[in-house]
């Protein structure tokens, strides 16, 4: 479920990035690549787990699935927080700078 939730997050952000392109002022490319990187890494984890468990891999216990879903949502939230911090530090539109200097346009 963690892999699935991260893949859906990656696809959603990639579609938004594509719609906004070539304007990358919101740094959505960075967010989508971050989710894709994590998805690829969890895919390897899933392959290793499948090699170990076989078909049982596709029938997880309800409690495990719930915990994995909760983890997936937390991972997406953490990814969004990292992106937000990066966006505020880079401040491509200069909004933070303007706000802090009290020079609102």
């Amino acid at each position: 479920m963690t892999l699935l939730i991260t893949i859906f997050a990656a696809i959603t952000v990639t579609l938004i990035w594509y719609k906004k392109a070539p304007d990358n002022s919101m740094r959505l490319g960075m967010l989508s690549l971050m989710f894709w990187g994590a998805s690829l890494m969890w895919l390897i984890d899933a392959v290793f787990e499948y090699a170990e468990l076989g078909a049982e891999f596709f029938t997880p216990a309800g409690e495990d699935m719930l915990n994995d879903s909760y983890l997936g949502l937390c991972v997406v939230a953490l990814g969004l927080i990292i992106w937000l911090v990066y966006l505020f530090i880079k401040d491509p539109k200069g909004i933070i700078k303007k706000t802090l200097s009290g020079n609102r346009a």
Binding site: T6, G29, L33, M34, F35, W36, G37, L40, M41
Partner: peptide, 11 residues
Amino acid sequence: NNMLWGGSALL
């Protein structure tokens, strides 16, 4: 870099 740092951080 974005894929490696992002993936490693989330992992």
